[in-house]
Computed example of a mutant assay.
Amino acid sequence: MTTFSFQRVGAMTLRYSYLLRSSYPRMLEMIYWPLVQMLTWGFLQIYLVGRPGGLAGAEPSAIGAGSLVGAVLLWDILLRGQQGFSFSFLEEMWARNLPNLFMSPLRPAEFVAAMMAMSLMRLFIGMVPVTLLAIWFFGFNLWALGLAFAGFFAILILFAWSVGLFVAGLLLRYGLGAENLVWSLMFVIQPLGCVYYPVAVLPSWLQPICWMLPPTYVFEGLRGVLIDHALRVDLMAAGLALDAVLFTLAAWSFTRLLRSAREAGSLLQTGE
């Protein structure tokens, strides 16, 4: 059995970076959607701050602290991290290249590592300009959160990779019939992750489900930093612990689904 090779991971990452670099519209799209989201919610925040008592009972302190803009930026890190992982996988399916990859010396772990690297690269291209524009338009500096931002990013990107890995396994086993999960699954998680509101506003029976999702700890922690000026290390630790469990389960699922796809011969039937 071949050992894990960083050289093969680098080769796959280079392949995906060439594909990305060859399509400027695709690169522009990575900035476009986070920018539209940030501007929409940012101007809504300005409008809310300008109203006495906020809108619909919204807490002026929460709005004024920039929690809406901060939540939008962190949500886009989660969403783009997952989609950046999944898009590299989908490109191989669309090109009917998966059988070639799995017949090569490339190991599944190396393939996954390359997709993680591309997820980070896509995030860097798409999110860094938007975070800088958030400073210019709204005076909100995500980078100024320092250690808190580092913790939030780690929790979100690990969860994004867990979801991406699980969806990749489903795509291997069931083909492009499961493609919609790439676009829709994270939006099912969004209301339960309490991106724009605290867990306390949800029905009591739903709150335990929310606390089973790592993003909930991030967005509760964000509101703690911005509104209460308190770094909730306990929330970060709990989010990372959940991530470790979910990533392990996702990796196990991916391995099992890959084995099942090989046995069923579905690897040779992928494509559009």
Rank of each mutant, 00 (worst) to 15 (best):
S5Y: 00
F6W: 09
V9Q: 08
M12D: 00
M12P: 05
L19Y: 09
S23R: 10
Y24R: 12
R26F: 13
L28P: 04
E29P: 04
M30R: 08
Y32Q: 14
Y32M: 15
W33D: 07
P34A: 12
L35P: 02
L35R: 01
F43C: 08
I46N: 05
A65R: 08
G66K: 03
S67E: 10
G70H: 02
G70A: 09
L73Y: 06
W75K: 09
D76I: 12
I77S: 02
Q83D: 06
F85M: 10
S86M: 13
F89R: 02
E91C: 09
E92L: 14
M93K: 08
R96D: 13
P99R: 08
N100V: 12
L101Y: 08
L101K: 04
A109W: 00
A109F: 00
V112W: 03
A114Y: 07
A114C: 10
M115Y: 08
S119C: 09
L120C: 04
P129Y: 06
L133G: 06
A134N: 03
W136A: 05
G139D: 05
A144F: 01
G146I: 09
L147I: 11
F149H: 02
F152Y: 00
I157S: 03
L158D: 01
G164P: 05
L165K: 01
G175Y: 13
N180I: 12
V182D: 07
W183E: 08
S184Y: 13
S184L: 14
V188C: 11
L192A: 15
L192W: 12
V195A: 15
V201S: 07
P203M: 15
P208G: 06
I209L: 15
C210D: 12
M212C: 13
P215A: 11
V218I: 10
L222H: 04
R223Y: 12
G224A: 11
V225T: 12
L226M: 11
H229K: 13
A230L: 12
V233P: 13
D234S: 14
L235F: 02
L240N: 03
A241L: 10
A241G: 09
A241C: 11
A244S: 10
A244D: 10
A244E: 11
L246V: 11
F247C: 12
S253E: 07
F254V: 01
S260P: 03
E263H: 08
E263G: 06
A264F: 04
G265W: 00
L267W: 00
L267T: 05
Q269S: 12
G271M: 04
G271R: 03
